[in-house]
Design a protein around this nucleic acid. Structure first.
Lengths: 364, 364
DNA sequence: TTTAGCACTCTTTTTGGTCGATTGCTAATC
DNA sequence: GATTAGCAATCGACCAAAAAGAGTGCTAAA
């Protein structure tokens, strides 16, 4: 062989690429005859067979059994993806779905992510996921309190990140006055604005207790709630189109499917796996088969990309499906989507807000 | 036959009950021999066969094919459920899960419902659902505004029903002052407190516009957002444990399963069906097979019960599974759960709030 | 009225064999 | 030396026939 161990001949590349694409399209092992006749490989089936045998030896292909054709190995998919210059033309319908995304009326991250997963799943026909970012990035920019009665009040927290809002209803074991709750909000704003979750420590808490001399007990109750809220504001993973998994024969094994759906419903495994990915990384990440850190997903592919808004990473979006995945389409969708979202902030909800009429019942 | 058409002999009842229970346990048609040997029916298989033939004639049993045993028909299940005095002893583990439910720290309906579905699904091992109530019942008891900058503010709405809170970030196409936003909150509280979604009409809107003379454009923008928020506050359906469906051979037909999961993900069909159920009804409702209003669920059973808190219906909880369902267990769980929730308000989060320490990092 | 027994029916499992697809190898050809 | 044609070998998919198994309905006896 005149090539180094990492270098495939052009003909091998051509054949490997054709095999991957044929397998993505058909979902079945690909044979030499098919490649010659249908995939326009300009060699005889025998030549192709020889090449396939070598590609198998090199680890790019696998043979389910002797009399079947070949399917790409993980290495084969990896090679294909790495050399893929993805060129996928969105149909007008698909472009339209992306348009709709732009019409999200809300400027909250949650809404953007939710819409984005819906669109991603609908366009690609795979299961989509979105991830909101880790709590360490979260700080509360403003606290507001709402007095309900002497035992109940609400605390409204506005996160530094794109004005996400979280509220907590707090029920007290003792009575407080409306003024006290008002003062509480000042103490919180003075001491906990812009403070991240790790920075909340006992000294800050004691300082606040000393500032709220009339009722220091309030502080510990409130701080606990704020802590929880910051956690909830911080990270969240959501899935859309889980049912689409069922379309693919790869998941027709009920036992596997059950495990897969459990894993998705359970979420924690996937969160853990994804959390290891660099938040600041701009590239689209592709995990094929066992490259995935979740065991159950070891014959699935996860494609994943961070989303930025106003230059900051607000979360991520991903697609889960069989290794045999329409990579071009998925990559194009993910990229387009993340680009559109990055552009979103300039437009905001301005046009929507201008377009208000009084016929409110015309909604939904 | 010495009995009226609606009256089964005791022996028939015994046999029918044994058949239903055996089928629930095994998931397969039950034969006369099994009933005699394993289910302790004190008659010979021939006698049992005769009774089974009559029960089939009466419509309580069905025979998938000649040489199979019998399975209960919908009527059979209905009979079983109607005569069922459900006596199900919760194991300590299950009771423990219910205990945990009590430890929900929050007093918001959403949290209670979420936890309740989780517990219900875990204990029964079927898919659980919860429903939050229809928007017509929702009014906003208090409005609060939070000024962010001259183009952005947040509106916080506290619903009359158990202080659920909803916030909306509003981005304006024109600048406003902090004072203006403060005044807006007064106008909203004066005019829209305690007003239900149907009662918002043009005359109220115009009245508010006249009261906010400095900037009447604000009103229509805000009202639209309030309208949307009230809708979102109003009703919501959630599912838990969808993957549990896969355990049951009834759903091993992939096509059916796909439709079922789609229906669940899609939600709207189920909401529509459930919406027809009387909100004030205290009984546990059981829809067996074609009694269900959702086509795709016509060989599933839906068990459903309204949840009350402080005497008011706050939502409902349900279980979805195959007709062959462990009715005793499910009914006991649903009833216990709804009872526990109805007791919840007295306890509230008081003990939790009292039990606060400063070691915040011990969480999760 | 109940039960034992048996023929009958229908599904499930097993078996055996054919068919078709694909490969690897060898020999011929370019 | 590279490519190709041809062919035997392999193995799963498919099908039909046979066997096994489960359960019933019916009849006759207890």
């Amino acid at each position: 062989m005149e090539f180094g161990k990492n270098e495939l001949s052009e003909r091998k590349k051509l054949i490997l690429k054709a095999i991957v694409e044929a397998h993505i399209k058909l979902g079945e092992p690909v044979g030499s005859k098919y490649l010659m006749q249908e995939a326009d490989i300009p060699y005889s089936s025998a030549t192709i067979r020889n090449e396939m045998a070598e590609l198998e030896e090199l680890g790019y292909l696998e043979q389910p059994h002797t009399s079947a054709g070949r399917i790409p190995s993980e290495l084969g998919y990896r090679f294909y993806v790495d050399t893929l210059v993805y060129q996928y033309d969105m149909s007008t319908k698909e472009a339209g779905e992306l348009e709709k995304l732009l019409s999200v009326k809300k400027n909250e991250i949650d809404k953007i992510l939710e819409k984005a997963t819906q669109v991603a799943s609908a366009i690609t026909n795979y299961t989509a996921l979105s991830l909101k970012h880790r709590p360490s990035a979260i700080t509360i920019r403003k606290y507001e309190t709402v007095y309900l009665d002497s035992f109940n009040f609400i605390i409204v927290m506005i996160a530094s990140l794109h004005d996400s809002v979280k509220t907590r209803n707090i029920k007290l074991p003792f009575a407080v006055s409306s003024e006290m709750i008002g003062k509480l909000s000042k103490v919180l704003n003075d001491n906990l604005s812009g403070v991240s979750i790790e920075q909340i420590n006992i000294s800050i808490i004691m300082k606040m207790e000393s500032e709220l001399t009339e009722c220091p007990e309030l502080i510990s109750i409130v701080v606990k709630n704020i802590y929880e809220a910051m956690n909830e504001l911080g990270s969240e993973i959501k899935f859309e189109g889980v049912n689409r998994l069922l379309q693919y024969p790869e998941y027709s094994d009920l036992d596997k499917l059950q495990k897969m759906i459990s894993t998705i419903e359970e979420k924690s495994d996937i969160i853990r796996a994804i959390s290891t990915i660099d938040q600041s990384d701009d590239d689209t990440k592709i995990f094929i088969g066992s490259e995935n850190m979740v065991k159950i997903m070891d014959d699935s592919t996860l494609i994943y990309k961070n989303l930025k808004l106003n230059g900051k990473t607000i979360g991520a979006i991903g697609i889960i499906g069989p290794c045999r995945m329409d990579y071009s389409k998925v990559l194009a969708t993910i990229d387009k989507l993340s680009y559109e979202i990055s552009q979103l902030s300039d437009i905001g909800q301005l046009p929507e807000a201008l377009d208000i009429d009084l016929k409110i019942d015309g909604e939904e």
